[in-house]
Design a protein around this nucleic acid. Structure first.
Lengths: 258, 258
DNA sequence: AAAATAGTTTTGCAATATGAAACACTGTTT
DNA sequence: AAACAGTGTTTCATATTGCAAAACTATTTT
């Protein structure tokens, strides 16, 4: 039986291992360190790094022997981001929402069965949180994830959950499939989702769905902050409404007509 | 004589060719197209794409046979951006400056002999322009580039100019080395640089240097917009001062004490 | 000063990656 | 409907590449 791993180009695969390891180490890694972590001989690592460095994908950090990701990755990553029309269309609305709420605002996209952060507008009051452009948002314990998943075909959602699992993050994480699906019904009914410390203790997020011109939910936006500021009361009285309005504006910008 | 191109890992090198070609084609490319452009057999391209796709570095566009850059590049690019402390330190100041001026504001970094855009805050009035995160700003015809180059060791600047040349962009581009170096003297004297339609017709930009804790110019910020809004008069009367003040705030944030 | 560790280079050869050829699929033309 | 053209995918013989062991160089630690 032919496997996905058949026909993988070994040296390319290895080089990508190296890049991903470097992305996890902001302070950089040496040749021998990389070799140990990715399980390759240091002379192999050295040659792969030589090619990556020549092409700008890695660089040595401040004339040390430590390697880090290179600027070419910024360029390619940004090229991919810039090709996302929804991102530029949505940005002004996100900015406005951040100004109104003074909390961090996010835009996530539903891509290949994953919810990915593709924009984020920080406020002056922003606190450190998990969300970061390029990161995947779990569909069971983030507002942006739950609100997208709730509006996808249930069979597809179940398949994804079976693959990635309902990983426990906090005591409030929903880790039972039937309870999550029931929760998704509630989200569909009220039109928005809340992450009530389900991903990070002390953090709450409210998210609303963004639709494309056909009415499919393809993205979500959210407002997130510490529970002492993003209170349940504040969500019900003002944030949910503002969020849904903003999401609707973005949806209309994308050609959605209800 | 050992060349840089010695010991290049061929299949990695080729895969990077493919990624860079895809970054130039927002609408995606097919296997055979890629093969034609990068000069490889379609079966070779197919196998490299298979590995890149498995790892998330490319994906097929909306169930077509066209390939495009994948989300993993966003992740890695953003990891590199997020490792830049100056970027997060500067962002609130850039936001403030954009609010005050209502024009596009940029942050560029001096890295490996190049000036690279690493942040950009758009205004509602932003017009389409060359600047894009990840792109390199020419040091002879952009404000952000000239103001960094002016404060670097002259020998190093001359070396870089000899390598990349003084490429003509508009009728106002400075294309003679002696005139450019003289212009750099003027920039050092007045403490800011102006790109007066030297890179794009109809666009003007004013830029100021950002210093590190040692006083070295390592970055620059700029305000840019159409010449009808970013007038010479407005630059002299208000923009230059605001820009220098903001650049100084960022420099102080980085530990610079004059 | 000696030992240990890390980075870099060399090299023989086994394994990989290549591209030509064939096959499968899709869209266009007749 | 059949033939044709072009693209994507797969196979396979083999030439070339990439590998890691070994050796060398440089730096750090003891």
């Amino acid at each position: 039986m032919k496997s996905e791993r058949d026909n993988v180009v070994q040296s390319l695969d290895r080089a990508l291992d190296i890049l991903e390891e470097l992305s996890r180490h902001e302070s950089g890694l040496g040749v021998t360190e990389i070799g140990s972590i990715v399980g390759l001989h240091k002379s192999t690592v050295h040659r792969l790094l030589h090619t990556l460095m020549l092409r700008g994908y890695v660089e040595k950090k401040n004339d040390t022997e430590k390697y880090r990701l290179g600027l070419k990755l910024i360029s390619l990553g940004q090229a991919r981001l810039d090709s996302m029309e929804i991102r530029s269309e949505a940005r002004p609305f996100l900015q406005e929402l951040m100004e109104q709420t003074q909390e961090a605002v996010h835009l996530c996209l539903w891509e290949n069965g994953k919810v990915v952060y593709i924009d984020k507008v920080e406020s002056r009051n922003s606190v450190l949180m998990y969300s970061r452009i390029g990161r995947v948002a779990p569909i069971h314990c983030t507002g942006v994830g739950k609100v997208i998943a709730a509006f996808q075909p249930e069979a597809e959602v179940i398949k994804i959950i079976k693959e990635s699992g309902l990983v426990y993050k906090t005591d409030k994480t929903i880790t039972q499939l039937d309870k999550l699906l029931k929760h998704f019904e509630e989200i569909r009914r009220q039109g928005y989702a809340i992450d009530d410390e389900e991903h990070d203790p002390g953090l709450r997020c409210v998210a609303a769905p963004v639709r494309d011109y056909k009415g499919n939910v393809i993205a979500s936006i959210s407002v997130a902050g510490p529970t002492i500021r993003v209170t349940k009361d504040r969500i019900e009285k003002e944030l949910a409404t503002m969020l849904i309005e903003t999401a609707n504006k973005i949806s209309r910008q994308l050609g959605y007509r209800q």
